[in-house]
Write a protein that binds this DNA or RNA. Structure first.
Lengths: 137, 137
DNA sequence: CTTGACCCTCGTGTGAGCTCCAAGGTTTAC
DNA sequence: GTAAACCTTGGAGCTCACACGAGGGTCAAG
């Protein structure tokens, strides 16, 4: 059994983060000492890693709570998990699309401008942003 | 001269948003009526459109404040504006990269799972998230 | 003269995921 | 025995770009 500092070091998160996860019902210490210190077991370490991996895949903490709930629900099936993953994938694709649009718009702005020491009155970037960006689209 | 509601409708933003922009020093009414009503001119409409276009390019409001400052600074040059755009572009590329990593990780998870009504104990997605995702990387 | 559509300021709430602080109690090492 | 290093709870703060509500003043039409 580990105290919060130990398990935090093992899983490479902060103790504050673990208390926060507990408040968000993502993780619970296996028990407490007489003095009220949280005590975690190996299962907790796996759970924290699960959370971290899921975060890297773009799942939010509330998504992850759903995933953990599914994991411990008898009636849940693989497809439930899969569809969460697919939904998440769609959202990420959506964000990607939005960012690509921004990236292209910026490219156009940057290319329209030669830089240099011209006064900003003549800056094609500022002009493009001010006018309806017609010539940039 | 327009009251806040009129100019908000013209530029397709809310009156609340305009008051917020004013607090953030992005825009100022040209004058006020005796009763304290804000009055805006045509310049304000252009300025709001500038802000909206810049947002669509990924600039934050504080970035935009910088842009607007440059625009009205004699000593500023085109290159100053251009470098802000380039910096923003780099940040967006960075975000894009992170999202692409997530997207691929999700693809791997989704493909590893056949879906169906298997119990979640055997779900390859949950397993991959729990173990160090070795077989997924 | 009243009704409804405006407008004002000020302050709070939202989501996400923490981080940090205060003011204490506990354990451990020397 | 005492100092350092841990732990506890509770709450505030942070970013970003607003939205919303309370409680009031103003203006135009009928």
């Amino acid at each position: 059994m580990y105290t919060i500092g130990k398990v935090a070091a093992l899983a490479d998160v902060s103790a504050d983060t673990l208390r926060y996860y507990e408040k968000e019902r993502l993780i619970t210490p296996a028990s407490r000492t007489a003095a009220g210190y949280r005590l975690y077991n190996e299962e907790a370490v796996r759970r924290i890693r699960f959370i971290k991996h899921a975060q890297r895949c773009g799942f939010t903490l509330s998504d992850i709570q759903e995933l953990l709930t599914l994991k411990h629900t008898e009636s849940a099936c693989c497809e439930d998990v899969r569809s969460l993953a697919i939904e998440k994938k769609l959202r990420i694709e959506h964000k990607l699309k939005a960012l690509r649009v921004m990236s292209c718009a910026l490219d156009d702005l940057i290319q329209s401008c030669e830089g240099g020491e011209q006064a900003t009155d003549d800056c094609s970037i500022l002009a493009a942003l001010e006018n309806s960006m017609q010539e940039v689209s």
